[in-house]
Computed example of a mutant assay.
Amino acid sequence: MRPFNQEYLNRILKFVNKYYQDNRTAPTISEVSSGVGMPRSTTHRYLQELNAKGLLDYGRGIQSPPESAKMKTAYISAPLVGSIQCGCPELEQEYVEEYVSLPVSLFGKGEFYILRAKGDSMVDAGIEEDDLVVIERNCNVSKGDIVVALDQDNQNTLKRYDGYDNYQKYHILKYENESKYPNEVIKVKKLQVQGVARHVIKAL
């Protein structure tokens, strides 16, 4: 493998740093590639090297600013990846609409993404149509958490996790709209949780 050019590494790091300070959010790999005048594949390889050196958090895109930018911005970047149904489960097609800058002082540190809520089954939990729900990946799930759940049919939905029925051997996903869905639940034999809802962003 060809050795990494230190000048290119510095150029990319400088670009990402300045982008964070100007926009308070992460640049996409295409924006980095265009900004430093390098092919996208080469940019990806250099971003991986910066990640390996601990100078940049690069995984599913750039996850957080360089250390020098963190002191000034104290923001993390979360992708907005479309909608999730808050009624009947539906198939999710994940795609990044944009990256949203979240202040660490309010949202904490973690691997976050954002979904736009659809439907009315979670209104009693304060989640309404078109609210932006901040989801944390790769975290422990407890009874009572609001989760993005993927069932055995590869359908997902946003519901409150109400635990596991050891007698009948199924997981319980609970609706949060008693006036419209009184005592309604979804029972699934196999459940995969894709994240836990931590915050709701909405207009007043």
Score class of each variant (00 low, 15 high):
Ile146Trp: 10
Val141His: 02
Glu178Ser: 11
Ser142Tyr: 07
Gln194His: 14
Arg137His: 15
Val193Cys: 12
Arg198Phe: 03
Arg137Phe: 14
Asn177Gly: 10
Ser101Lys: 05
Arg160Ala: 08
Ala149Ile: 10
Glu97Lys: 13
Lys159Tyr: 03
Arg137Cys: 13
Ser105Trp: 13
Arg198Asn: 05
Gln152Met: 09
Ile146Lys: 04
Arg198Thr: 04
Val148Tyr: 10
Ile114Arg: 14
Gly119Val: 05
Val133Arg: 11
Val100Arg: 06
Leu102Arg: 04
Asn156Met: 13
Ser105His: 12
Val193Tyr: 01
Ile146Cys: 08
Ala117Glu: 11
Lys190Trp: 00
Asp131Pro: 02
Val196Pro: 10
Asp165Lys: 05
Gly144Glu: 11
Tyr161Gln: 03
Lys118Ser: 12
Lys174Leu: 14
Lys187Asn: 08
Val147Ile: 02
Ile146His: 00
Asp124Gln: 14
Lys143Met: 00
Lys118Gln: 09
Ser179Leu: 00
Ile201Cys: 01
Val100Ile: 15
Ser142Gly: 03
Pro182Thr: 02
Gln194Leu: 15
Val134Gly: 07
Lys169Pro: 01
Ser179Ile: 02
Arg160Leu: 11
Lys109Asp: 04
Lys118Met: 05
Leu115Met: 15
Ile127Phe: 15
Pro182Glu: 08
Asp120Leu: 08
Val104Trp: 13
Tyr99Cys: 02
Lys189Ile: 07
Ile146Ser: 08
Glu111Ser: 14
Lys109Cys: 02
Asp130Pro: 05
Glu97Thr: 14
Val104Asp: 14
Thr157Asp: 11
Val134His: 05
Tyr175Asp: 06
Val193Trp: 08
Arg160Val: 09
Val104His: 13
